[in-house]
Amino acid sequence: MKYLAFAAGIFCATGLAAETPELTVYTYDSFVTEWGPGPAVKAAFEETCGCTLNFVAAGDGAALLARLRLEGARTEADVVLGLDTNLTAAARETGLFAPTEIEADYDLPVAWDDDTFIPYDWGYFAFVHAADMPAPQDFLELARSDLKIVIQDPRSSTPGLGLLMWVKAAYGDDAAQVWTDLADNIVTVTKGWSEAYGLFLDGEADMVLSYTTSPAYHIIAEDDTTKDAASFDEGHYVQIEVAGRLAASDQPELAEQFLNFMVSDAFQSVIPTTNWMYPAVTPAQGLPKGFDALVEPREALLIPEDQAQATRDTALAEWLGALSR
C-alpha cells in the first residue's frame, strides 16, 4: 500500500500552488544541477517576473527534441532551452515553435539570423589533453601519432555528432579516409560525454573530445592548470545552443519575456562558470578570469542548418564504415 500512498502524495503535491503564473522550461540534465546554470537562472528570473519558473530536465538536446515530438502540441513546455544547430532544422520542421521578435548584439563566431531560435551560449569542440603533453596540430597528425583518444557515439551523444560534423566540414569527401586513419587512435567510443570525460580523467586515454572551454572549468573551479585543449589548424566546429518558445504555450508573453531575459546580462553572466560555454552576448563585466587562457581557434566551422541533416546521414555512414572494420 506504500505504493498508493506514494502516488497520492505526488498528486497532492502537483495540485497545489496554481495561483502565480507558471513557466515551464524543458532543458537538458546538466543545466538543472546545483552546479549548472539552473538555480541561478531561476532565482534571477523569478525576482522580476512574478511567476514560478519550472525546469523539466530530459536527457540532452536530442532527447529533448524527441520528447517534444512525442508530446506534440499537447506539451506542457512553454520554452525549450538546449537544442543546438544540428537539431534546429528538425525542430523547426515540427511546426511546434513560435517565431520570436528578440534581437541582440550577439558575440558569435558566425552571423546569426533566425526568427525562431535565439542563441544563449556557444563553444568550440576540441580535444582536451594534459597540458604537459605535446598536442597534434590537426587530425592528420593525430591519426599518424600513437596518441589514444576517447570519443562519443554520434548516434547517442551531442559532442559525438559534433565531431562527425567537424571532420566532415574540414575534410568533405576525404572524411571517410580520415576516420579510417584515426581508427587505431580511438581507444573506445562512449554513449555520452560524461563517460568519455570520466575515462579521460581516469587516464584511459591521452585526449578526449570535449570543448575548448573545458580547461576553464579545471582552472576556475579546481585551480588546476594541467588540462589544455588542442588547437587544430583545420579550424574548430562550433556548437551554438539555442532556445525557442512553443506555439501552443499558454504563457506566450511570459515565454517571450524569458527569451528576452536569456540574452540579458543576468542570464549571460551566469553561463561561463556554470555551463562552461561562451555566453552568446558578452556580459558587461566581460568574461571571467581563466577564459583568457583558452585557445582561440583560427577558424570557426559550421555546416548550415539546411545541409546539416543530409551531411549528418552521409557522415554517419562513413563513420560506421571506417570504424566497424
Binding site: D153, R155, S156, A183, I186, V187, T188, V189, T190, K191, E195, L199, W319, L320, L323, S324
Partner: peptide, 17 residues
C-alpha cells in the same frame, strides 16, 4: 552503454543502441 564502451566502438553496436 557497457557493450559500446568496452567493445571499443561501433563494431559493438547492440540492438538496444
Amino acid at each position: 552503454a557497457v557493450a559500446l564502451m568496452l567493445g571499443g566502438g561501433p563494431r559493438a553496436t547492440t540492438i538496444e543502441l
